[in-house]
Write a protein that binds this DNA or RNA. Structure first.
Lengths: 143, 143
DNA sequence: TGTATTTAGGATAAAATTGTCCTTATTTAA
DNA sequence: TTAAATAAGGACAATTTTATCCTAAATACA
């Protein structure tokens, strides 16, 4: 469904959201540990998320990452499209370049319904609520 | 969403379904052409689908592939799981090994809803209806 | 029987994704 | 001012996925 990079990215963002409303910045090392992700690879992803304007990074001791916006204003769709692009939102289920209502692939109509639901869900799900569930112990980032 | 292999496999199955209720067997060469797929790679996928019991293959001149069952009894879920396994049906959206109602990842509940809809759609969509749309010119396998 | 045609399958290659390593730049604080 | 800590980013490596090539096996038909 999502790439590994995207999975790591989402987990990182949720962890940062949950952690940084307590303290300030969160370090790469801590993020990678708590999300059970490879450190160096996670670094690349956080870099990308910073470039895309979803994170703010600071170097040096006490440096780290913080959300660029309030977690209530950040949703999963923004994260996914920052990392995986918009393929998941608009791409054809059978990989055709041209696939729309004018010239649909055989599964287009049925696929579009599900895909649009996924898009809706990703757009409606905020980092705030995900971080809250995590903080409450209702959900987990590892295992 | 689906792997390339799976996309090719689905397109091939739809083409075979549409073509073989007219004639009998359909050759690899024809399938690859009409689905705009690489021949040798498609061969591997058709091999796998044959091993999985979804296709019957015949060697020699006039040989080729036919559906193992009536297209009304074959659905997309069977094809997807033959090629990509059941990851798409049961896998965690964030890649956790353990992720269920007992110990959910942060997106589990919302993700499961969409994933279950996808599963339902794949189970309910038969090769018969897809092949019919294609034959009627309402849908396409290329471009 | 022999030849052409077609799928099976092993070996290999290319490309994309995932992952690591190392150096540089920046910042903090002693 | 220096040392330590941290992210940035380039180079490279490993793995997975996608794709190709070649030979073998099976089959139809002359």
């Amino acid at each position: 469904m999502f790439s590994k990079a995207c999975e790591y990215g989402i987990k990182a963002m949720i962890y940062i959201a949950q952690k940084s409303d307590e303290d300030g910045k969160v370090s790469l090392k801590e993020i990678a540990e708590k999300t059970d992700s490879p450190v160096a690879f996670t670094a690349k992803i956080l870099q990308a998320l910073s470039r895309e304007g979803l994170l703010i990074s600071t170097k040096g001791p006490t440096g780290g990452f913080v959300l660029a916006k309030s977690p209530s204003n950040m949703n999963l769709a923004q994260i996914v499209s920052a990392i995986d692009g918009d393929k998941v939102f608009v791409g054809c289920g059978l990989g055709l370049e041209t696939c729309d209502n004018e010239r649909p692939c055989p599964v287009h109509h049925k696929f579009a319904i599900v895909r649009d639901e996924l898009t809706l869900m990703l757009n409606l799900t905020t980092l705030q609520e995900l971080a809250l569930g995590l903080k409450n112990g209702d959900s987990f980032l590892t295992r």
